[in-house]
């Protein structure tokens, strides 16, 4: 018997949650701090917007910042987890040794626009909203996020426009990201060196 039709996530980044089956949103600030992003996510209107899009779970990696989720959940919520507006399950933590598992389980990634997290999400064919951290001007996060959004590999927004982005976004408009290949650069180095 042929297997039931399953969603082939690798076909496109538009991994909207399956109808009724729910979907997980991962928020990550990387190895640094990005309180403005955590603060923007910690908003009942964001929870409602995500629930309205069919998501059922929100996982927030808050990093080394000072701001802790307190509007979606009571600040002293046991296990740092609970139910938010729209029936969205919310949990948060500071760091994990590796985010790989959480990344694999996510259907939508809302990330700071650092290259590590951005390309980890794109390589895993995740729908991505890249949020440049304006406090790190020297990192040129907006340059990278803008270029990738221009090619429709992700959406990009400043933290203060995150809610509007979530309300308006259409994940099916995202284009798959073609992975780069280090071997091409190495081949050129081989040639230069004379190997």
């Amino acid at each position: 018997m042929p297997p039931a039709v399953t969603r082939a996530r690798s076909e496109g980044a538009a991994a909207a949650p399956a109808g009724g089956g729910g979907g997980t949103v991962l928020v990550t600030v990387g190895t640094t701090r990005f309180d403005a992003l955590v603060r923007a996510v910690d908003d009942p209107a964001v929870a409602e917007a995500l629930a309205a899009s069919g998501f059922t779970e929100l996982v927030i990696q808050v990093g080394a910042g000072e701001y802790r989720p307190q509007r979606l959940l009571p600040p002293d919520a046991p296990g740092r987890a609970g139910m938010a507006a729209g029936g969205l399950r919310v949990s948060w933590f500071e760091f994990l040794p590796s985010l790989a598992e959480r990344m694999a389980a996510a259907d939508l990634v809302i990330s700071h626009a650092g290259s590590g997290s951005v390309f980890e999400a794109l390589a895993a064919s995740k729908a991505l909203i890249a949020v440049p951290n304006a406090a790190l001007m020297a990192n040129h996060q907006a340059e990278l996020a803008g270029a990738l959004a221009g090619m429709r590999h992700c959406f990009t927004t400043p933290p203060e426009r995150l809610l509007a982005t979530l309300q308006r976004m259409d994940l099916s408009t995202l284009a798959p990201y073609p992975k780069g290949d280090p071997a091409a650069i190495v081949q050129e180095i081989d040639r230069l060196v004379g190997i």
């Binding site: 650092g114 290259s115 340059e143 990278l144 650069i185 230069l192």
Partner: peptide, 15 residues
């Protein structure tokens, strides 16, 4: 030989 590889984060400007 000195080989420099600009970061993938640099799309429009050199660091």
């Amino acid at each position: 030989l000195l080989v420099y590889v600009e970061s993938i984060a640099r799309v429009d400007t050199l660091s």
